Computed example of a mutant assay.
Amino acid sequence: MSEVNTLLIGRNRLFLEGLKSLLRGSSFNVCGEALCVGAIEETDAPAGLVLIELRDDLSGVVEDLHQLREDLPETPVVVLTDERDPRTLASCLNAGAAAFLLKDISLEALIHSLKLALLGQKVMPTDLAAALINGAAGLQPVGGKGVESYGLSDRELEILRCLVNGDANKVIANRLDITEATVKVHMKSLLRKIKAGNRTQAAIWALNHGLAPGLPFGKTDRAAVAAPAAKEVVMSQMMG
């Protein structure tokens, strides 16, 4: 893959220098470093990926993620953390994070996970993904209401599973053999029915209501699953 300009945001210089050293020689070229989102400086090379260290103050991180989504709407943001709380994971994903990776990940797995994030996949630790599927994150408590009570059509349920996979509209259209315009119509309808504000919230809702990924491939956009383990690590983090 071609070189990706990468912006690093961390709580201290030592962490930033260590991460920068680890990425040296990879396809992720560090184009900038900052101790907080407010300290980001404009550079001639726009970032294609952002790596941000999770702070102790979760509300602050959520604010940072919202700010990054506003400033860099097309740039995937990957959270690096020691935190294993599924609620923290859910909050970060809900705020726009593309991936939630633990700091004890191996360098090989980190690079692979970053590539998956660039492909639009959601990457996270396996145990936390399981907690989301079991409804432990608490963002959208099921409260006894089954999925059937929301009035979702079979097609909308298929699209929800595609969202859990991290699929873009084009990929969903190819998988289900429908047009992108039709995908958008169904998407608008299902978001309204489950009261989700965006695709990420819908994917989290689907996980909390037991809709795990696994829709069979139809007409597939092969570029979206180019990584050999992509389907297996959409909801998990490769640990080295």
Rank of each mutant, 00 (worst) to 15 (best):
F28Q: 03
I9M: 08
A224D: 05
Q121F: 07
L7Q: 11
D154C: 10
A226P: 05
Q201K: 05
S106W: 12
E156I: 04
G32F: 01
R87L: 10
C31Y: 03
T75E: 07
Q140P: 04
A117F: 01
G32S: 05
F100P: 00
D57F: 07
R24F: 11
R155V: 13
A39D: 14
N198P: 00
L176P: 00
I40H: 06
D82F: 14
V225M: 08
A230W: 01
S153A: 09
V79R: 02
S2H: 12
D177C: 13
I105T: 08
L22W: 10
N5H: 09
R84Q: 13
G138C: 09
L116H: 01
G120S: 07
I105G: 00
S113P: 01
L119T: 06
V233C: 06
M239I: 15
R87D: 10
A109I: 01
C31I: 14
A224F: 03
V62G: 04
L128H: 01
Q121M: 09
K184A: 15
R24Y: 14
L7S: 05
E158C: 15
K184T: 15
K20Y: 07
H66I: 08
L157V: 14
L118F: 02
N198L: 05
A227Q: 12
N169I: 10
P125S: 03
A98I: 01
T179F: 12
K115F: 07
T182Q: 15
A224C: 10
E156V: 04
L190S: 01
D167M: 13
L80H: 02
E83D: 15
L54G: 02
A45V: 15
G146E: 15
L160T: 00
T6Q: 07
P228N: 05
L102Q: 09
R222T: 11
G138S: 08
S106E: 13
R84W: 10
G143V: 03
L93N: 00
I105M: 12
G240W: 10
P213V: 07
L65G: 02
L19N: 01
L110A: 06
L215S: 12
G96I: 11
G38L: 08
T200S: 12
G151Y: 11
L102A: 07
V164W: 00
G25K: 14
R11T: 13
V37Q: 13
L211Q: 04
N169W: 04
E3M: 13
C92A: 08
T179V: 08
P86S: 04
K184I: 11
M239E: 11
D104G: 05
A136N: 13
A131F: 05
R199T: 06
T6R: 02
Q121V: 04
K188N: 13
G48S: 09
A173W: 01
S236L: 08
H66F: 10
L116N: 03
T179G: 15
K145Y: 14
T43K: 07
L132M: 12
G32L: 03
V225E: 12
T200G: 05
V50I: 15
A129Q: 02
V225G: 03
E108W: 06
L114T: 02
E83N: 15
V62H: 04
L207F: 04
C162M: 13
V183T: 02
Q237M: 11
V171Q: 13
S149Y: 07
P125M: 05
L157S: 08
V61A: 10
M235T: 10
T182Y: 14
P141V: 09
D177H: 14
D64V: 04
V183W: 01
A223V: 11
K193Q: 06
G166E: 03
P73M: 13
